[in-house]
């Protein structure tokens, strides 16, 4: 594993939706090492434990990473108050990202809520060979749909209440897509019930699937073992660690 830790400037900040923030951080070495699906571990002034945040986009030429996160508690609330020009203590890139298939292969990205941001970085690898299916609670919570179009990936928007895009869950849109055409890989990030539904469909249509998990973390590098998740290893249940063995796992290896 190879990662760095240091203080890097926040160069741009946007509020994308209620409680959703968009940070661009300049960290050349980190951006050079980063792969879609990996995460960074941020230190927030006033809090002891770092906060793991998935990487949304990587711009190696500009030497920047983009992070889109949701305020979940006091730590992420304090994180959201950091302003452009200030430094952020970042450790990363950490963990295992999504498999990036060779050019010409097709993939479907499925994201739910704050699980959507890491799918953007993966989508940009596939460009027009990817299709994104993203779901949100309602129109006010919708983020990043234009960004998928910017990287060349068509985007199917679903909302739970039908206030934007398709009325319904991402799994319904995924089923329709899989009926039409089966990709080489499905990549998904979102709440556990969504992941379960995606994995069931992937199995039904015989498409390989990778899912990104989250858990409360300590060290972020696999030393402290707090971020356990249930997986299967050699036919037996094994508590793997989201930070080092994941966050991205083969769908067949996880027990949700």
């Amino acid at each position: 594993m190879s990662y760095v830790q240091g203080e890097y400037p926040l160069i741009a900040k946007k509020n994308l939706a209620k409680n959703i923030y968009d940070f661009t951080i300049r960290a050349h070495h980190l951006a050079a090492l980063a792969e879609p699906g990996q995460f960074v571990h941020l230190r927030v002034p006033g809090f002891f434990l770092r906060r793991p945040i998935s990487i949304c986009e990587i711009d190696r030429e500009a030497g920047t990473i983009r992070l889109v996160f949701e305020i979940r508690g006091e730590g992420t609330e304090a994180l959201s108050r950091i302003n452009p020009g200030e430094l952020v203590d970042v450790m990363g890139p950490l963990g295992k990202g999504f498999t990036l298939l060779p050019e010409g292969k097709k993939a479907i990205m499925v994201g739910g809520g704050i699980g959507v941001p890491p799918m953007l970085g993966v989508a940009s690898h596939y460009g027009e060979n990817a299709k994104a299916i993203v779901g949100f609670r309602n129109a006010a919570a919708v983020i990043l749909t234009d960004d998928f179009k910017r990287v060349g990936t068509s985007c199917i928007l679903c909302t739970d209440d039908g206030s934007a895009g398709m009325h319904g869950f991402v799994t319904e849109a995924l089923k329709q897509e899989l009926e039409r055409e089966q990709p080489d890989l499905i990549c998904a990030c979102g709440p556990a019930p969504m992941l379960k539904g995606v994995i069931a469909l992937a199995d039904q249509y015989g498409v390989p699937c990778e899912v990104s998990l989250e858990e409360r973390m300590g060290c972020g590098v696999g030393a402290c073992l707090v971020c356990a998740c249930r997986t299967v290893k050699d036919g037996k249940e094994y508590l793997a660690h989201v930070c080092k063995d994941g966050p991205v796992f083969d769908a067949h290896d996880v027990i949700l």
């Binding site: 002891f48 300590g218 707090v226 356990a228 508590l239």
Partner: peptide, 15 residues
């Protein structure tokens, strides 16, 4: 295997 997650919680000045 140890205990089920969550296995960590933030506390004032610690965990």
């Amino acid at each position: 295997n140890g205990n089920p997650a969550p296995r960590v919680a933030e506390t004032p000045a610690g965990m």
